[in-house]
Amino acid sequence: MHGGGVGDVVVETSGLEVGYGDVRVCAPVDLVLRRGESLAVIGANGSGKSTVLRTVLGLLPPLGGQVEVLGREVDERDRRFRAAVAGVLDADAYFPGLTTREHLVLTARGFGVAEAGRVVDEVLEVVGIAHQGDTLPDALSSGQRRRLLLASGFVRPRELLVLDEPEQRLDVRMRRTLARLLRDETARGGAVLYATHDETLLRETGSPALLVAEEESRVLSSAEACELLAAGL
């Protein structure tokens, strides 16, 4: 993660403790994520990757330490926060009775996207389910529903994109497309925070990685992180 001014900082944590109730799931987290950067979160199953993401998104309160997004304390009820932060977690959630395209158009319009239909059609094409635009989400395959879930993050405005293991249920070709989308995201000045087990996704994005563990949480280079994932972390 490159050096930059204070105004470039999108996510900053200091001694952040995450968990449930009063039970901490990993060692405290210190990180700085700036505009134009991506950061992977890696670790063994159950190490706290998703918990870190949920805390950054304001879905869980921190147990200790500090977390700020865009220079403010996290508050997912804040309209400015919701307008700037797009989170895609591992939970399918759709508007009942709406087709794939209608679901995305409603999402885009809800966030004030101009020409929502055009934006949605472009994203549907990129994620490879344009031909399923008139299909109800329940009729999609597992992989197609995953693409729809990812599309819901890409059809809305955002300064920070948070993804929880976005590679799940995607084939190799779509994983490469996802890596390109994340590179494009940072190239336009956005910030990306994502949890992953996928060495290829990490290598193709070139992201450094936050390793979360019970004994110590620390930031690794992309090469160091890829070696750990290749070894079966």
Rank of each mutant, 00 (worst) to 15 (best):
M1I: 14
M1E: 15
M1R: 14
G5M: 10
V6G: 10
T13I: 13
G15W: 14
L16F: 12
V18K: 08
G19Q: 06
G21P: 01
V23P: 02
L33T: 07
R34N: 05
R35W: 05
E37K: 02
L39Y: 08
L39Q: 06
L39N: 02
I42Y: 07
G46P: 03
K49Q: 10
S50L: 11
L53T: 04
G65C: 05
V67C: 15
V69G: 08
L70T: 07
E73A: 14
E73W: 12
V74P: 07
D75R: 08
F81Q: 04
A84K: 09
L89H: 12
D92P: 14
T99F: 13
G110S: 13
F111M: 12
F111H: 12
A114M: 03
A114D: 14
A116Q: 04
E125M: 10
G128H: 09
I129R: 05
I129E: 05
I129S: 01
R145M: 02
R145Q: 06
R147D: 01
R147G: 01
G153V: 09
V155E: 11
P157V: 06
R158Q: 12
R158S: 11
L160W: 08
L161V: 07
V162S: 04
E167R: 00
R169I: 00
R169D: 10
L170G: 01
R173K: 13
R173L: 13
L178E: 03
A179Q: 03
R180S: 09
R183P: 00
R188N: 00
L193V: 04
L193I: 05
L193Q: 03
T196H: 06
H197V: 02
R203S: 02
E204G: 01
G206M: 04
E215V: 04
L220D: 11
L220W: 12
C226V: 14
G232R: 11
